[in-house]
């Protein structure tokens, strides 16, 4: 795999068609993993795959079964349907399986496929959440931190413990928003480690100016349908954005409570101060890291 292009899984039961498609994608520089079925696709998937190109009909299912599998395992991975069937004739999956489609019947179909795959795999183009405008810079800034090391720090554990008692809430956490998931580097009151970005409230917090309060998650159309947020101890949210010195949003310091809850301006200011503390700790870790190099 090149440094810039992600791997592509090419799914088609017809060996001749699949081989031609694989060759076209390989000629464009992609590492391509051929697959002849839904089951084989499950084996071929991993986090280095940026796009799945699938036929509409497969021996053990259909293209939308592949899409369902991909969305379940790697929800941000782009999916492209490449078939000679016309849109109206396609067996439909659910009503919410948004994908790209390239008909094999158009002239220069492989060229068009390469164009669409190249574009679709160029970032989180099929993400089910809003993506920051400076996402590449933001992720580069986050990559400078050792998340495993941060997760082991007692400092953040002490801070989240202090936050739960200060606000009299059920859960407090420090979350860093990575490319596909949010990682909880410290969490008091629950045993959460990661959540996918499309399910994460902090995905939205990093887009806000500073502190975001959701008084009742079940009444907010952005989050009311998220199953992961329907746990009994998750009903209200307040999150203060964490940024680095360049202004890149790395994550958030957050309060979760099992009842709907509002926050006074004084409480919002306090949460901001807790987030300032996390930002200072992160900056300190970076200075120590740079000093040791």
């Amino acid at each position: 795999m090149s440094d810039e292009l992600p791997a592509v899984v090419c799914v088609d039961a017809d060996e001749g068609i699949r081989t031609a498609t694989v060759q076209a994608l390989e000629a464009a520089g992609f590492e391509v993993r051929p697959s002849g079925s839904v089951a084989d696709t499950e084996t071929a998937l991993d986090d280095s795959v940026g796009c799945v190109v699938t036929a509409a009909t497969l021996p053990d299912g259909g293209g939308f079964d592949v899409v369902e599998l991909v969305r379940d395992r790697y929800p941000d991975c782009a999916c492209v349907l490449f078939t000679d069937e016309q849109p109206a004739d396609l067996p439909r999956g659910g009503r919410e399986q948004v994908i790209e489609y390239v008909p094999r019947t158009v002239s220069d179909a492989h060229d068009r496929l390469v164009d669409v795959v190249t574009a679709a795999a160029s970032g989180t183009t099929q993400a089910a959440y809003p993506v920051p405008e400076n996402e590449a810079e933001r992720l580069a800034a986050l990559a400078a931190y050792d998340l495993e090391e941060l997760s082991a720090l007692d400092t953040f554990e002490r801070l989240t413990s202090l936050i739960t008692s200060h606000f009299d809430i059920d859960v407090a956490f420090v979350g860093l928003v990575d490319s596909h998931e949010e990682r909880f580097v410290a969490c008091e009151g629950a045993n959460w480690r990661t959540i996918s970005r499309e399910d994460s409230i902090c995905t939205h917090t990093i887009l806000t100016g500073d502190v975001m309060v959701v008084e009742d998650i079940q009444n907010d159309p952005r989050f009311a349908a998220v199953d992961q947020l329907k746990e009994p101890d998750i009903r209200s949210y307040a999150g203060a954005r964490i940024t680095d010195g360049e202004g890149n949003a790395l994550g958030a310091v957050c309060c979760i409570h099992g009842e709907p809850r509002s926050y006074t301006q004084a409480e919002v200011d306090d949460l901001r101060r807790f987030a300032d503390e996390v930002e200072e700790q992160l900056a300190l870790r970076q200075r120590l890291k740079e000093g040791s190099e």
């Binding site: 919410e96 948004v98 790209e100 574009a119 679709a120 183009t125 089910a128 993506v131």
Partner: peptide
């Protein structure tokens, strides 16, 4: 599209997909 979708996330995916195609093309 937003009114008919019980979940806003697929609409985000739809908007991201269409705007990405427009941007890159």
């Amino acid at each position: 599209l937003l009114v008919y979708s019980e979940d806003v996330r697929p609409v985000f995916r739809f908007v991201n997909t269409v705007t990405s195609r427009i941007r890159t093309a």
